[in-house]
Amino acid sequence: MNDPSVAALHLALDVHGRDVHSLRAAISAAEQAGFALATFSDGPLAQGVPEAGTRAAFVSRLTDRIGLAPTLHATVTEPFHLATQLAALDHASHGRAGWIVGAANGVDERATIGAAPLTPEQLREELADVTAVARALWDSWEDDAVIKDAATGRYLDPDKVHHIDFVGESFTVKGPLITPRPLQGQIVVLAPDALELDELADVVLIERADAAAIGERARAAKEAGAPLAFAEVSFGFAEPDAVAKLVDLLRSLAAVVDGVRLRPADPATDVPVLIEQVLPVLAAEGLLRPAPRPGDTLRATLGLPRPANRFAREGAVQR
C-alpha cells in the first residue's frame, strides 16, 4: 500500500463538529469518503472547542477503519497522562490512534498550567523529551508480557514489563505504562514540520506556500528519518475556480509528498464539495491511496510497519 514508486496520496481530514450530532455526522462522512485519518485540532485556549482526546475517544466506536489523531499539547500536559491517554485511544479504537504533537507555548496558553513560555531551545528539548518518553512508555510492556497461566492465576510475565527510568530536562518518568502495549505497538506520531521532530515522527506535517517548497521540506524530513511526509492544505470554495485549483494543487503534491491533511475553511459547506467534486477526479487519475478496510490499523493503512519493541531481548521473535 505504501509503494514509494506510486505517486498517490494518503488523505487526512481535519474534522469539526458544531455539536455532538454534527461531530458524529462529520466523522461518518470522512470514513465513508475513504479518508485514512481524521485529525482533531485543539489548543488549551481554543474557543469553545472541546478537548481533542475526548472527542477522538468519543468517535472511536462509531468508526471501524479511519485513523483518529487528536492534537495533544506536550507543553501543557503531564507526559505520563499524555502517553496513557493515547494508549487508551489505541486500545479503544482497535489500533487506529495517532497523535499530532501540539506545542502551545503562548503566554496565555502556558499560563493555564501556571507556567511561563519556554524559550525556543527549552521548547525543542521539551518536545523531544515528551515524544521520547511516550515512545518508551509504549514499549514498556513487551508484546508477550501478557500470559495466561490459570494454574497459578498469573497473567503477566514480570520480566517483560519494564521501567523506563527516563530523566529529561524538566521531568522524570519511571514507568512502566499502566496499560498493555498499544495494539499498533507505537501510536502514529505526526509532527508539524516547524517543531523539527523529524527523526522522532512517523509523519511530518509540512506547511509551506507552494508545492516546490513543500517538496523540498519533505525531502529533508525523509533524510532525517521520517517515514512519511504530508502536506498541510487549507482549502475553501469561495472563489469560482477553487475546485479546479485544488485539484491542480493536489496533483502536483502527489509527486512530492505521501499524503495531505486537508483543513476546510467552512467544514459544513467545503467538505461535501471536496468529497463530491475534488476527490473523484483524483481517484480517477489514480492519485489516491485505497481507502482503509474495516479492522485496519492506522499503521497498516499508512504502510508503516509495526515497530519492534526496544525492550525485547536480542533475537526474540517479533510479531
Binding site: G53, T54, A56, F58, T84, Q85, A88, H91, A92, T179
Partner: peptide, 8 residues
C-alpha cells in the same frame, strides 16, 4: 486503561 478516554 486511562479512565477519562475510556469513559468518553
Amino acid at each position: 486503561q486511562e479512565p477519562l478516554l475510556y469513559v468518553a
